[in-house]
């Protein structure tokens, strides 16, 4: 995984070590420990208020952890940014008024220790044709692309994107991720938070799931799906009750709607044979793998069910 870029300990691009962040009484991030190796494309997933944005803010040095340490290429985040290791695209906010897109990108490139030619940046972000437009008079999707250009205006080693495709239509989203893949192929480490799970599934080679400020899962999309309860079994079985099926092995969740049974299981073979062994003869059987989206929902729901309702980090920001 080593790509020969200037590196920190173990060549990690990003290290969170027992990082906790409290906002008053509310714990937004809880003892988060995480390594992100250089050269990876990593998706950051979590429901609203899970602590994603707070974690990204701490990674960018915009907020200080209450306890624990964050290192970026072995350095405190602010030092890594000053050294030009990090390019970032924030989630919200307008762009500067009374300047053109080209002027804005030129400024951001000048502010970087290793600036890139402005025309190249405009092209990579697919905004060459809007370069002379005023930066505060763009559509949502165009604004997002300009923000992306700001993130890649210098030759950074790590690119951090907080919900980059919000407000983009399908076509723009594809163009955007194509540009992102080019960055990844050039050896950049990419970390992005997203609400679109199919993006994480297709693009990321590491998926980090955060819920209630804690690390819930960390691995490939396939690992996450496995962790969630790998498959879904669905069949029709007249006269069955929930109680009688709860005894089945490997069942993660169980739903009975009218005569239809929906089971999430970590081992569909074992579960299904047990159904047959118990003497049932279900009809209209379907056995399918979970998508990342369903897997995500499953593991966060398990986690939420695991402990009693408590102060959520929701709206802590």
């Amino acid at each position: 995984m080593t790509t020969g870029i200037r590196g920190g300990p173990q060549g990690a691009a990003v290290t969170f070590e027992n990082v906790t962040k409290d906002y008053g009484q509310v714990r937004a991030v809880d003892e988060l420990s995480l390594d992100i190796a250089q050269g990876r494309t990593v998706a950051f997933l979590g429901p609203n208020g899970a602590g994603k944005s707070t974690s990204i803010d701490m990674l960018l040095g915009l907020r200080r952890p209450t306890s624990g340490t964050v290192r970026v290429f072995g350095k405190p985040p602010h030092d890594a940014i000053t050294a030009g290791h990090v390019g970032a695209m924030l989630q919200s906010g307008g762009l500067l008024s009374d300047v053109t897109v080209r002027e804005l990108v030129t400024l951001m490139s000048r502010l970087h220790p290793r600036p890139l030619p402005v025309d190249d940046v405009l092209e990579r972000a697919n905004i060459t044709e809007i370069a002379e437009r005023k930066a505060d008079k763009l559509s949502g999707g165009q604004t997002q692309r300009v923000r992306f250009a700001i993130a890649i205006a210098g030759d950074s080693d790590l690119i951090v994107l907080d919900e980059p495709t919000t407000g983009m239509d399908v076509e723009n989203r594809q163009i955007f991720w194509a540009a992102m893949k080019t960055q990844a192929e050039r050896g950049k480490t990419i970390l992005f938070a997203t609400h679109y799970l199919e993006e994480a599934d297709q693009i990321a080679d590491q998926v980090v799931v955060i819920n209630k400020g804690r690390l819930l899962a960390n691995g490939t999309a396939a690992d996450i799906k496995a962790q969630a309860g790998f498959q879904k079994i669905s069949f029709r079985l007249p006269g069955v009750t929930r109680d009688r099926l709860l005894m089945l092995p490997n069942v993660v969740s169980l739903e009975v709607i009218n005569e239809r049974v929906l089971i999430q299981t970590s081992d569909s073979d074992k579960t299904f044979y047990s159904i047959l062994d118990a003497g049932y003869r279900p009809e209209e059987i379907e056995i399918t793998a979970l998508g990342l989206e369903q897997a995500f929902v499953a593991i966060t729901q398990q986690d939420n069910g695991a402990d009693a309702p408590e102060a959520r980090a929701e709206d802590a920001r």
Partner: peptide
């Protein structure tokens, strides 16, 4: 510019 996050964006530069 504070409200719209421009200052935050500048803090992510050198």
């Amino acid at each position: 510019e504070r409200k719209e996050g421009w200052i935050r964006q500048l803090r992510l530069t050198a």
